[in-house]
């Protein structure tokens, strides 16, 4: 073992103590913040599991004495769970897939080819992010009510289609790279493709690949992190979105989970204004948990990609 002089060993000790102190501070901070972040979920869970006696009992704070699944059952029926789950899945997975395909192609076009109006189009893409969807709300509502493009549908079917009460208003724009926050997805892909090296691309061209082949064979396999990021964000945002479904879908059978959650109190109380919070809140919390649960499970399995891929996509660059 090395021998230190007295002053040296004091210095080393000081340094170590400082390190421990900082680590302790950090741990305390993280525990505190984690508590704040996890608290609502835990609180909702604990309240939802409480029976009526436990709710009135002031000695019960976190751990219920009489566990009950009554609230979950109630929420399950109020949310119309299986049906709404299926609907939610429809309006989140399909747009997410289209978002990945369309936005990556657009991002590729913007990142790898030069043409005069490129910057203008990119500026327009960013502009779509700034405009709140509410501005477009009524025209879009009217538009989907009598859906027609260049009178083509009128020519074939004799009258315009009514797309309200279907999921097409949510899905259709994503096919062409529009829809919920898709400007951001195009931006992510553009940044990612811009950061990729030119050598591979040139090698592919030398070997006689067309630009489309190059895109499919070189760029797509190399942009897995970006694809995962965009897919996850798109899926989660569509799952949680209330605004679009609440405008375009009026039929209760077609409601999504998040839409049902937003209305759950009215569903439970049957629309009456006077209600007992002890009766309403626990099932409401149970409902909230049931709605976030699928995404939560999904997140637990994919969080590694979520965090790491965002770093590697270089959103910022």
């Amino acid at each position: 073992m090395l021998k230190y002089r007295k002053e040296e060993s004091i210095l080393i000790l000081k340094h170590k103590l400082y390190g421990w102190f900082m680590m302790l501070l950090k741990i305390l901070l993280f525990i505190g913040l984690a508590y704040v972040l996890l608290r609502p979920v835990l609180f909702m869970l604990s309240t939802a599991l409480k029976s009526r006696e436990d709710l009135i009992d002031p000695t019960v704070v976190w751990l219920p004495k009489h566990l009950t699944l009554e609230n979950f059952k109630k929420a399950f029926y109020s949310l119309n769970y299986f049906n709404a789950f299926k609907n939610s899945l429809l309006v989140s997975i399909i747009p997410a897939i289209f978002n990945v395909i369309a936005c990556s192609m657009i991002g590729y076009g913007l990142a790898r080819f030069k043409f005069k109006e490129r910057e203008l189009i990119f500026a327009l893409i960013l502009f779509t992010l700034v405009v709140p969807p509410q501005v477009l709300l009524i025209p879009l509502y009217v538009f989907y009510q009598r859906f027609d493009i260049l009178s083509l549908i009128k020519l074939i079917k004799g009258e315009p289609l009514n797309l309200l009460n279907t999921y097409y208003p949510i899905i259709l724009p994503t096919i062409l790279g529009g829809g919920l926050r898709s400007g951001l997805f195009i931006y992510i892909f553009r940044q990612f493709f811009r950061g990729m090296s030119k050598e591979l691309e040139e090698a592919a061209y030398v070997d006689g690949a067309s630009p489309f082949q190059t895109y499919v064979k070189i760029f797509v396999p190399n942009s897995i992190p970006a694809i995962i990021t965009v897919f996850l964000f798109s899926l989660v945002w569509h799952w949680n979105d209330v605004f679009e479904p609440s405008v375009f879908i009026g039929d209760f059978e077609k409601y999504t989970l998040s839409l049902n959650l937003a209305n759950i109190r009215a569903i439970i109380t049957g629309g009456t204004q006077i209600w007992d919070p002890l009766l309403i809140l626990p099932p409401q919390y149970a409902g909230a948990i049931l709605v976030i649960l699928p995404m939560l499970i999904f997140y637990i399995f994919t969080q590694r990609f979520f965090v790491e891929s965002v770093e590697r996509t270089g959103i910022v660059g």
Partner: peptide
């Protein structure tokens, strides 16, 4: 990190 990004996933206006 997983805990800190939880809001990104769970957070919805309705909730």
């Amino acid at each position: 990190r997983a805990i800190f990004f939880l809001p990104v996933v769970v957070m919805s206006g309705a909730l």
